[in-house]
């Protein structure tokens, strides 16, 4: 589903990604962990070209994003959830979810609304359709953001620390929605510090440090028996 080869990304002189190779299978849930500033967000953002790779190839669902691809078309298939939700504050929750399907996929409004309401039901927010995002709690906003991404019926979902901006008591309501998605077979790449989630839901765990994938494997095994010193050091701090 996602195929990344020898990906490099520099911001000016600063090389943030130093040769990433990563293949993600359909329906696989890959959890990415690593210290702050190690390049996790940049890696994720290269998967939908919010950041343009300096070199290397990124192929998603058969489309080479690093060639002259129609990036808007490709992004229709790649949902993204941000740390800070980024809901559209001037629109109701319902319109947040309907906007892209109507404008991009040209779904008829009635159909888009029905889909949006079904998605709100799925994330447990049926009663918030007519609310504006600033009226919602962080956890509710993030669930709306997930519903908004799902409304495009993407083939892949990217999550960049979706629970890091939340009060602790709201973390689980978001993780539960993500677990549901994983169980339904969504292909997911998730940057997170939630090790419980990684262990329970992740098919594979990647440890990233200084722009490289240092170690990867089945989450349980990496947690219990890390092969690299750096992984061990990092895990000793977060576990």
């Amino acid at each position: 589903m996602i195929d990344i080869k020898n990906l490099h990304k520099s911001f000016g002189e600063h090389e943030v990604l130093k040769g990433i190779d990563l293949h993600i299978d359909p329906q696989e849930v890959v959890v990415i962990i690593g210290p702050s500033g190690s390049g996790k967000s940049t890696l994720l953002r290269c998967m939908n070209l919010l950041e343009e790779p300096t070199s290397g190839t990124v192929v998603v669902d058969g489309i080479d994003l690093t060639a002259k691809a129609d990036i808007n078309k490709a992004r229709e298939e790649i949902g993204m959830v941000f740390q800070r939700f980024n809901l559209f504050p001037h629109m109701t929750v319902l319109h947040n979810i309907m906007l892209a399907p109507v404008k991009v996929r040209h779904v008829p409004r009635a159909e888009a609304e029905a889909t949006a309401r079904a998605l709100l039901e799925r994330v447990g927010l049926s009663d918030k359709a007519d609310a504006y995002p600033p009226q919602l709690s962080g956890g509710q906003q993030q669930r709306v953001a997930i519903a908004r991404a799902l409304a495009m019926k993407p083939k892949v979902m990217l999550f960049d620390e979706p629970t890091s901006a939340l009060d602790p008591e709201m973390v689980n309501e978001v993780l539960d929605v993500m677990k549901g998605l994983a169980n339904d077979g969504m292909t997911m790449a998730v940057v997170t510090h939630e090790m419980g989630f990684a262990r329970e839901v992740g098919d594979r765990l990647l440890f990233v440090d200084e722009g490289r994938i240092i170690e990867q494997g089945v989450p349980q095994e990496v947690f219990e028996n890390p092969q690299e010193d750096r992984t061990r050091l990092f895990l000793s701090k977060v576990l």
Binding site: N86, L99, K103
Partner: peptide, 27 residues
Amino acid sequence: IDAGQMEAGRSLGMTWPQTMRHIIVPQ
């Protein structure tokens, strides 16, 4: 306007002009 608004619009597959028109300019 927060740069995350443009990123959210673009990541949904909207073009730059579409995001400007529906998300950025109204705000």
